[in-house]
Amino acid sequence: MNKVIEGVAYVLGNDVDTDQIIPAEHLVYSLSDPEERKNYGKFAMSGVPADQAGLPAGKIPFTENGQSESKYSIIIGGKNFGCGSSREHAPACMEIAGVRAVVAESYARIFYRNSVDGGFFIPFESVKRMVEEIKTGDDLIIDLNKSTLTNRSSNKTYELKSLGEVIEIIEAGNIFEYARKTGMIPSA
């Protein structure tokens, strides 16, 4: 596992639900077809209300017109990130768009679980609320060994909560690799 994650911040608020992350009308595309799945990157975060999209100013599209990859690879969120539906298309669309980590104050549990078990990206919890500390476009680096998030645009470092017991699944890659490592399912 990479010990640092570097990227540009995209900041969102509280209660970002899965309908905002990927509106239901887009849940029709194949997640396994290499071309068709790019639609998920294209529509990632397309349901976020304009004034909440890319805080503090808002009105910043997550992906440019028609692109399936975003220049923002670290999402900053407030409380209850990923609430709502169990659609795994939500963490999947973020990964397809290039997201490698989320740092939120807290998560809705199915979204958190999907992120970890599917191995899409690492969902970190911040010790203090980050939404007002970081601006969309800031240059960030997460240090997994130190459990810190540094905003290189403001030269401030913040503490992240320990990943706790899910670290074993994150290190293995996903729930299947974890189960193989522990002998629960036969190695492929």
Partner: peptide
């Protein structure tokens, strides 16, 4: 409720 990965598992 669970996601696709857990359901596949």
């Amino acid at each position: 409720g669970i996601g696709n990965t857990d359901a596949a598992f």
